[in-house]
Design a protein around this nucleic acid. Sequence first.
DNA 1: AATGAATGAGGTTTCATTCAT
DNA 2: GATGAATGAAACCTCATTCAT
Lengths: 212, 212, 212, 212
Amino acid sequence: MDVAIVAQRTRLPRADRMEQTLTEAHALFAERGYAAVKMEEIAGRVGVTKPLLYTYFGNKERLYIACMERAAEALTATVATAIAGAETPAAALRAGVRASFAFLDSDRAAWAVLFDETLPRGGEVAERVADYRGRILALISDSIMAQLPERSRPAARVEVEALSTALFGATEALARWWLRTEALAAEDAAELLIATVEPGLPNRSKEERPPR
Amino acid sequence: MDVAIVAQRTRLPRADRMEQTLTEAHALFAERGYAAVKMEEIAGRVGVTKPLLYTYFGNKERLYIACMERAAEALTATVATAIAGAETPAAALRAGVRASFAFLDSDRAAWAVLFDETLPRGGEVAERVADYRGRILALISDSIMAQLPERSRPAARVEVEALSTALFGATEALARWWLRTEALAAEDAAELLIATVEPGLPNRSKEERPPR
Amino acid sequence: MDVAIVAQRTRLPRADRMEQTLTEAHALFAERGYAAVKMEEIAGRVGVTKPLLYTYFGNKERLYIACMERAAEALTATVATAIAGAETPAAALRAGVRASFAFLDSDRAAWAVLFDETLPRGGEVAERVADYRGRILALISDSIMAQLPERSRPAARVEVEALSTALFGATEALARWWLRTEALAAEDAAELLIATVEPGLPNRSKEERPPR
Amino acid sequence: MDVAIVAQRTRLPRADRMEQTLTEAHALFAERGYAAVKMEEIAGRVGVTKPLLYTYFGNKERLYIACMERAAEALTATVATAIAGAETPAAALRAGVRASFAFLDSDRAAWAVLFDETLPRGGEVAERVADYRGRILALISDSIMAQLPERSRPAARVEVEALSTALFGATEALARWWLRTEALAAEDAAELLIATVEPGLPNRSKEERPPR
DNA sequence: AATGAATGAGGTTTCATTCAT
DNA sequence: GATGAATGAAACCTCATTCAT
């Protein structure tokens, strides 16, 4: 009897419990960063005990990764879709930036988890985050690369990587600023970035110079 | 001889010991980030015990700040000088970016300490770092602002702030990439960034346009 | 058998473990005073590790407070009960003193924790101890005050406070002496104090004078 | 030359330096208690370095003892003189209490050092303080004892010791209260104590009963 | 006689993680 | 499957005290 009552309250199916845990953990991580969140706290919010967290996710890093991956999948999917729908490489780049800010606007927490700066270096988390950043970076690189005449592409590889990184960094910084201030509509921030960067990107028309 | 070496390592004048400590601590912090460095380890490298570190620097945060400020002063001075020597706002911006990368090239560790991402949020360190970033950001903002016709400046304030942040972020990300790969000469990285960003910055009037 | 013993020592229910901890901590604190007792030592006696102490009590001060409060509640309850049962104010005072010494006699350690002189000034502990002393002092004050004719009470407030403090101090010192020497039966110590102090307390009217 | 200047500032004769150190240390100890005062701080106030403190006094305990002894000598001398001048034992007791409060009134700090409650148990300091308290206690005991008929003295020894302790405790507590509140003139506090305690002390006139 | 430099030896507290039930 | 109990392994910081000059 007593058991039944308790069961009603606590015995959710495993999948549901994991889902709920992910949600709470995500919120916490987004708000305060990886290091500042304690397993105890997550457990407390979910209403379970710490060992359950370990049963489900193995350790803190993997729990974070689980949170982060949901966000990362969503972002990459969003951006990839946006890019895929564009007709020219330049349009793809614009679409990608716009999609990123739209994503940021629609799910601040997801972005925060994906771009947490306080992740411990050299751990499993950092590795997986790097993976995802690499994927996004690749999307940017490809779009830039596609704007180059085919035969100059191999030579430009390094520059394009550098440029992609810079553009990604600009996006990230602008996003962080936006999260802090919200002094602009998210889409206006996107347009501002596009407008600033686009003229200088490797030639959109033939006659323009290659990336130096 | 042995005595001489030992003598070198012990009973240094306070200033020298602090200097030495700063050097070792700086290297460690740059390599592994704030949180991953233990006071004990710093002491060990310097060849003293922890209490001495505390006597000289008070606590870990202030030791980090001391390291960081040396780097920050150096960077801001470098950038400010470069900017001051420029003849037009646009040239100032270019000079600033070039100076940044030159600084990065000449002292990788200094940059790393200044742009450590793993700093604990909300502490004294984070605050001080934010101060310095703010100063650098202001230098960028001013240079961008100065390229605008005077009467449009007030309206553009927010955009300029956003743009400066983005540019700063791009620089930072590119710098980090460069530190990791060194796939380019530092100055080429700088030029790449300049070339990409400059055309898209707020329009200037013809006569302000630099010769190059 | 061995198993049984081990079982006794490990994995106790929280309440039991707290109880046990309180007991051991109390004994240690009583014996050596707050500062001289290390958390590690308490943990060792209980047969657990330090973190458990922190899980249960938060910090050293709160652990001490928990010990002290048990003693304080017991003492104040004992004294208050004794006083409440008395028929005249003078009898109340006598009953209070007697109850105090009876308490002291029955639980030396409790008294020691409550009247530890080595508590660090200005901490949470000192504050809480002061609270309890204040309560006991109030009991004394009330008893003395009640022996005064009603209309002279307001004017006597300060004197009564002073007198209560002195009486409390005398009790404390006598108790400490008794703990050290046990040269007298505790109840005789009480009677001695009563006999000495009572004649000099503010004059009562004849009819209030107790039979004895 | 340089040496001469420094010498002017710092090279006081040893005796003067010790005197000055005692003064400053005393003030600090009186204000915050033994444990809360750091050697560094004392050195700082005196304007010398810590090793000098150690050269002069050996260690913290002995420095405290030096401070305390000055106070203790002064108090015992004051009280002893007062008692010696009295004509009857009862008068001696009154004179002693009055002298104590006069002393307290004239040198709060001296009293505080002598009656510091935060002294570490079992150390050299505690021992020496106990010595002095013992001496004062003896003065009280003697005065009480002298009021007894000669032949009942041996039997009363323990009671007299207890009574003296209690009276001493009352004085101490009242003194502490007075230091905190100063709600009364010091001499009024003394009179209050005398008035309260005297009637109950062992018979002043022959026909009164012995100490129980 | 005096100092600047340096240390030994702890002390409290934190947190991810794992037993035993 | 889930829990309450328990821990390992540090990390930061403090202070009386002593070298070496």
